[in-house]
Write a protein that binds this DNA or RNA. Structure first.
Lengths: 215, 215
DNA sequence: ATTATCTATAGATCTATAGATAATGC
DNA sequence: ATTATCTATAGATCTATAGATAATGC
């Protein structure tokens, strides 16, 4: 079920050894995430990237063909990590009586852990070459769909009111964005909430709508 | 009441004529907004900015002292425009029986008109020198506070349940961000909603919480 | 022999300023 | 005389590649 995403196959390289390519690109992504978060994409130079990766610039350019490629690798890696986090939560047996709340909670915790990454995505997605921007938006949508599907399942079970699809879609996106919101409004929220309080309040907000509509 | 914000006083210039400074900076901002939206801040060169503004680079640099200054002028201008839009809505006599819904509606419409600007802000706020980033976040907070104050007023009038301040703050931020959401998830929402439908649905979402809590 | 890595640098910018020129006001 | 504007360019990068060197496998 957990479809393996292999985006790297699309970035050209002259290196024959596939495992090596994977390994080096992982190094590149790790270095890039660190530097992009610190200085942003545009202000990070390929030289700095090479240095942080531990390769020479020459070698770096054997594994990618343009600086944009690195941005794409980073974007995909971040989305994959968030997606995995949510999927893990979905796979785990639910202790809470409310499965949806459980998923929301795990997702918000992922967003909390990865808030620098979330901010980075908002900064740079738009700078990807169109073809790759599309891929990244698809990844984003895949995550949102995890919430939407969870709600649709509950709807079938009669545990949720019979909302129409568009409304459920909207709620899914709202959940997704409320996670991001914790990341990019942390400068404010951290003054009045812990992450747990934030989760509790937002969950209540979402649930109250889903409950009320039931009647 | 409508406090005049004069951020420009803080950017140094050798030009004596205050009116001229205002005029030229307005030109600069107009050019910059256009180019930044099109190519992003980092990829827009000072030469392009000068050309679009109609000044030589030399002259451009008489009105600002670094490229960052231009970003700051742009950020403040955009926030001022959004803030003004919402304030206008608040000042207007309410026809709707629900004052809050009216304000939300106008705000969302502003976000719809200015969605490119909203996206731009998410890209660049973090690249402002710290002192100015702070100013921009304050501007953002001022807008959010318009919603929060509107709700607090309703609370006093007994038209809203007696929610605690933090909860109202959170709802205020949610409203603020739902406006932005239309901008940065337009690629998806435009497929399933018109802006009017989006407003209606999100308003219902917010209101249902405020109503329910009343009981 | 083949594959991976490195050094050195071409070539293309980009920001910001110095110093010269034009416009404005007394 | 003072204020505003322009031209020309210094000085500093930055991406990407060519061609040389080192490591690996038969």
């Amino acid at each position: 079920m957990t479809r393996k995403i292999d985006p790297e196959g699309e970035i050209v390289t002259h290196i024959k050894n596939k495992d090596l390519v994977r390994k080096r690109r992982r190094q590149i992504v790790d270095a890039a995430v660190k530097l992009f978060i610190k200085h942003g994409y545009h202000k990070t130079t390929t030289r700095e990237l090479a240095k942080e990766t531990g390769l020479s610039i020459g070698s770096l350019y054997e594994y990618i063909s343009t600086k944009d490629d690195i941005l794409y690798l980073v974007a995909i890696a971040i989305h994959a990590e968030v997606e995995q986090g949510v999927k893990d939560a979905l796979a785990r047996p639910t202790h809470s009586k409310d499965a949806l709340a459980e998923v929301i909670r795990e997702y918000f915790l992922v967003c909390d852990r990865m808030s620098d990454h979330v901010l980075l995505m908002y900064q740079v997605t738009h700078f990807l070459p169109e073809k790759w921007e599309k891929k990244v938006l698809e990844a984003e949508l895949r995550i949102t769909n995890l919430f939407i599907d969870a709600m649709k399942q509950l709807r079938v079970l009669g545990k949720l009111p019979n909302l129409d699809d568009n409304t459920i879609n909207l709620i899914g996106h709202n959940i997704s964005i409320m996670g991001h919101t914790w990341a990019f409004r942390r400068w404010y929220f951290a003054k009045i909430f812990t992450i747990d309080q934030y989760i509790e309040q937002q969950t209540e907000f979402i649930m109250s709508y889903l409950e009320e509509a039931k009647n």
